[in-house]
Amino acid sequence: MSRVVIFDETGGPEVLHVVDEPAGEPGPGEVRVRIEAFAVNRLDALVRAGTAPMPARLPHARLGCEGTGTIDAVGPGVEGLAEGDAVLITAVPDMTAGGTYAETVVLPAARVIERPAGLGATEAAALWVAYSTAYGALVEKAGTRPGDHVLITAASGTVGLAALQIARQIGAVPLAVSRHAAKRDALLAAGAAAVVATDEEDVVEATRRHTGGAGADVVLDSVMGPGLAALANATRRFTGTLVTVGWLDPRPAPYPGNAITTHRYMSFEHTLDPVAVRRIAAFLRAGLRTGALHPAVDRVFALEDVVAAHRYLEEGQQGPGKIVVTAG
């Protein structure tokens, strides 16, 4: 049997509960992973609350789009993977039907990769979604180059912190945006070349000051909302790129008509492509080896405390790093 987190109706964290279910056997081309740890993502909370673009398959819906563990069963036709291999889960075909909030999960073998050597389970659980999203947006979508000025909103969030590190690894110049000047020192310590605190300064004026008047070559935005227009004005005209990766502000955010390139990026664009996954994995392994990338964990909960983990996320007091739940 396997403990699994489910919910039968949408709502607050209290709708989540743990049940026992058969672990399931892998079919052709599938593996079963015994989960050691998984991260709690903002998308999970949106799905649970019924406010995400994807509807939950109620009742008996599940959560979780990333995790790490060891393979404990291999289906027919699977090559290159064996029982006992430590892996990262890179994508879940339908998380409300087979999400990673569980002790075991069965999924296609193509959706796991080798866990980077030397990375513990809790740190590994904090790696994939944040860093693959930041990589995909900055490298695959925006084509960030050494020397580019990269403006990163919600920089103290998990994708923002990953983007600071990835920009540094590329050789770009990361400029962090935060609503609070009190976070300036922490963001500078995290790798930002400069911090724009919007409770003290205008984002357009500050960005132009830090870029010699030109504007940012790349803007990575996790917020959306009406502030998107200001970010467009902070982007270098004609050659700049604005990529949005989140929707922390639910208010309308019409895409700007400025003379810049704009993209709406969803990580599944690349995490469902095995060729792109190999590029992402190679980039992340290189950054982990050199120390350029270092996933942070804010707080760890046990599986039976998953309701508390979601409450902690919604309180908004999360420090730098991911909320991780251990399942083993």
Results as ranks from 00 to 15, higher is better:
Val203Gln: 01
Asp202Tyr: 06
Val204Lys: 00
Leu63Thr: 03
Ala214Lys: 14
Pro116Ile: 04
Thr198Gly: 10
Pro320Gly: 06
Ala155Ser: 11
Leu242Asn: 01
Val275Thr: 13
Glu103Ala: 07
Arg168Thr: 14
Gly136Gln: 00
Ala49Tyr: 10
Ile35Pro: 03
Glu123Ile: 01
Ala234Glu: 05
Gly99Val: 06
Glu14Ser: 15
Phe38Glu: 00
Leu58Lys: 14
Val105Ser: 00
Thr244Cys: 04
Asp72Arg: 04
Gly11Lys: 10
Ser2Phe: 06
Gly321Asn: 05
Met1Glu: 08
Ala181Met: 11
Pro320Ala: 09
Arg237Leu: 10
Ala214Asp: 12
Val19Cys: 05
Val74Gly: 02
Val306Arg: 03
Ala192Leu: 05
Ala176Asn: 10
Gly213Lys: 10
Gly75Trp: 05
Arg32Tyr: 12
Gly143Lys: 13
Ser267Asp: 12
Ala181Tyr: 11
Asp85Asn: 15
Glu83Ile: 14
Arg251Val: 11
Thr104Leu: 04
Gly319Tyr: 09
Ala52Asn: 13
Glu269Asp: 12
Tyr131His: 13
Leu303Met: 05
Asp72Ala: 10
Met224Pro: 00
Ala82Met: 12
Trp128Ile: 04
Phe238Val: 15
Met1Ile: 05
Ile71Asp: 08
Ala155Asp: 01
Thr235Cys: 09
Gly319Met: 06
Arg145Trp: 07
Ala309Phe: 12
Asn233Ile: 00
Phe301Arg: 00
Thr144Asn: 06
Arg111Val: 02
Pro116Asp: 04
Val277Asn: 02
Leu88Gly: 01
Ala309His: 09
Thr96Tyr: 03
Ala230Gly: 09
Ser222Lys: 02
Arg34Val: 06
Thr100Glu: 09
Thr70Tyr: 08
Asp305Glu: 15
Gly118Lys: 11
Ser2Ala: 15
Met224Arg: 12
Glu103Val: 02
Arg209Gly: 15
Leu46Val: 11
Val150Leu: 00
Asp44His: 07
Pro59Asp: 11
Arg278Met: 14
Val203Phe: 04
Met224Thr: 08
Val106Lys: 03
Gly240Val: 02
Glu114Gln: 14
Glu304Ala: 15
Arg299Asp: 08
Ala189Gln: 13
Ala214Gln: 14
Ala259Phe: 09
Gly191Glu: 06
Ala276Lys: 15
Val129Gln: 06
Ala45Gln: 04
Arg34Thr: 11
Val300Phe: 07
Leu119Ser: 06
Val306Pro: 03
Ala45Tyr: 03
Ala37Phe: 01
Ala229Trp: 03
Ala39Asn: 10
Ala130Glu: 02
Val324Asn: 10
Gly257Asn: 06
Val92Ala: 09
